[in-house]
């Protein structure tokens, strides 16, 4: 699934325009990116948590030549899967229709 597929889901299930869906998806990931860049962690219940980790610099080595290279301190990103998703990924539920989130064109709701 790509960003464009996610946009299509919003258009299909929420009746948004293509433009609105693009702006929405862009806003969601930009705001997450901005928070992480501020050094903030993100916790999405059921999905997982993103944790910004500060690494200290160290003396690294070029594995081919053995030459010592200083590695600068930096920030990395760790993701820990939330419990619900961890269980669902590992033990997928039998494919039963989930009416609460599947798109039903006849229901007529969900159009903005």
């Amino acid at each position: 699934m790509l960003k464009s597929d996610l946009i299509n889901v919003l258009v299909g299930k929420k009746g948004m325009t293509q433009k609105q869906a693009e702006a929405t998806v862009e806003t969601i990931f930009e705001s997450m990116k901005d928070a992480l860049c501020r050094g903030e962690n993100i916790e999405i219940r059921g999905l997982g948590a993103f944790h910004v980790k500060n690494y200290q610099g160290y003396q690294g080595r070029n594995p081919k030549t053995g030459q010592i290279i200083p590695v600068k301190p930096k920030r990395g990103l760790l993701f820990r899967t939330g419990k619900e998703l961890r269980d669902r990924v590992n033990r997928p539920a039998p494919q039963t229709p989930q009416s609460d989130i599947s798109f039903d064109p006849k229901s007529g709701n969900g159009t903005y």
């Binding site: 889901v9 919003l10 299930k13 969601i28 999905l47 998703l85 997928p92």
Partner: peptide, 13 residues
């Protein structure tokens, strides 16, 4: 909906 879609997609592998 975005995060539910995430979960469904990943659940399918």
């Amino acid at each position: 909906l975005v995060f539910d879609t995430f979960k469904e997609t990943l659940e399918r592998g």
